[in-house]
Amino acid sequence: MTQVELDVRNLSVARGGVPVLEGLSFTLKAGEVLVLRGPNGSGKTTLLRTLAGLQPPLAGEISQPPEAIAYGAHADGLKATLSVAENLAFWAAVHGLRDIGPALDHFNLRSLASRAAQNLSAGQKRRLGLARLLVTGRPIWLLDEPTVSLDAASVGLFADAVRAHVADGGAALIATHIDLGLEARVFDVTPFKPDPETGLRTRSAFDEALT
């Protein structure tokens, strides 16, 4: 795996035209886990979506190696009528990989492989969604509340997966509220909430000119 680094400089992100975080700077190096914290609605999801390239930043710079990001959203992107193995094999094929065996084993999905995704429990679906990360072969994981609906044993499986991933030279940025038992730096986004007075200034010059 190539040396990876996600570098964020003075980043501002907006949701629905409203700035939610301003002036963020941090670096995520290979072998690191960074845990994002902040109250609900503080902009963690927006930050992750921006880093994943799904929406443009309002200001600032993001530097990262090309095609390095694997994004794990709230929604798992599963197809109800496809089996566990079919779902996983699809994402593997999209990312140019073939072997879904390790991912199935890692998240203890082997026995469910031929079951349709619609017949999985919420926790099993989540495990399948997380197993998808392994078949992307991408070094930087951006995870949004990955442990939702997982039981304690599954959280353990997930923590093991992250540990193995970073030991292998990967990196992970995880928005979560629970303690994963990982050796991780914590990054609290709360101080980066924009000031309502100056905040709108960084918005488009259009609205600035108006108010």
């Binding site: 799904l54 095609e67 994004y71 959203a73 929604a75 992107g77 994402w91 990312h95 140019g96």
Partner: peptide, 15 residues
Amino acid sequence: DFEDGSLDLLATAPI
């Protein structure tokens, strides 16, 4: 695909 999040994931895929 939009509703179940697949489209987001496809958008970050190498296609």
